[in-house]
Design a protein around this nucleic acid. Structure first.
Length: 273
DNA sequence: CACTAAACCTGGGAGC
DNA sequence: TGCTCCCAGGTTTAGT
């Protein structure tokens, strides 16, 4: 589920509730959701620690503790992290409950793809899943020339390149399709075959689409909620994702749906070239 | 190296 | 109503 705008929204809504709070207890209803080094127990990892920082890297949420340890969370398809000011009963797919000095944090995940990974102090820099991520698309290290260099000579479809987290991190299937529509570029175009003017359009479209997603509080198709349990609203502004066969909002012709790299891709054959 | 399929899971919706 | 099949916001790993 959560792509960059959703994880960023969770970060922003969660931070005021948990920053500075002390962890009293951790409860694992499904232990598989909480990954930690051999020999370390969940209680030893978290108990009496306080939350010092809450950051995002791509689609990862990084919860920093006061001793330098980090809980790295990836929501995959259906994960959610919700703060409850008062003790709340676990929902059907709640796997982890973190009891804080005030309130509780519930991690739920219907499909059980997501994970909370405990990383001991000083070991975050060695985490492969974070190290191989490309630049933040809304950050200073993502610039047009970098984008051009990374796509240069690549024969892979540009849609697949947008989903490649080692090129840019944070885009998922929704925002990739929307950005390509915004840029007027067909998803199956060869990455290395784009003109520089098209790369510029795509670079801008990626950043604009993600910023709009954040402004809307993310896209709620089914499961996604922010840390307060609230839905996003970007689903009301989607122009192609999930609209295969329906009329293009710009030209009225039917949108096409195809598979690229195993993922559904929706585009307008008239507005995108 | 590059691309594809399978694996990890559950549940909603379509079609019969 | 109920059964089967297909699909889903992601990533890693194994295979070609």
């Amino acid at each position: 589920m959560p792509e960059l705008p959703e994880v960023e929204t969770i970060r922003r809504t969660l931070a005021p509730h948990i920053l500075g709070q002390t962890i009293k207890k951790i409860q694992l209803l499904w232990p598989g959701a909480f990954v930690l080094p051999a020999g370390v127990t969940p209680a030893a990892a978290l108990r009496r620690r306080s939350v010092a920082s809450l950051d995002r890297r791509g689609k990862y949420l990084l919860l920093g503790l006061d001793n330098g340890a980090t809980v790295v969370t990836h929501f995959r398809m259906t994960g959610s992290l919700i703060y409850y000011p008062q003790p709340a009963p676990p929902a059907r797919h709640t796997h982890v409950i973190i009891h804080l000095a005030a309130g509780q944090l519930h991690y739920a995940d219907q499909r059980k793809f997501g994970r909370l990974q405990f990383v001991p102090p000083g070991e975050l820099g060695a985490l492969a899943c974070l190290n191989k991520l490309g630049p933040e698309p809304l950050g200073e290290s993502f610039w047009l020339e970098y984008f051009a260099i990374r796509l240069n000579g690549k024969k892979t479809p540009v849609k697949a390149a947008l989903l490649d987290q080692t090129i840019i991190c944070g885009l998922g299937n929704i925002y990739a399709d929307e950005a390509l529509f915004q840029a007027g570029i067909l998803p199956f175009r060869e990455s290395g075959g784009l003109k520089f003017s098209e790369l510029f359009l795509l670079y801008d479209a990626v950043r604009l689409t993600l910023r709009q997603g954040i402004e809307a509080g993310g896209t709620t198709f089914r499961d996604y909620r922010d840390a307060d349990g609230q839905s996003g609203s970007f689903q009301n502004r989607l122009r192609v994702y999930g609209r295969g066969g329906q009329p293009c909002l710009v030209c009225g012709r039917p949108l096409q749906k195809i598979k690229i790299g195993g993922r559904a891709s929706v585009y307008c054959p008239d507005c995108q070239h």
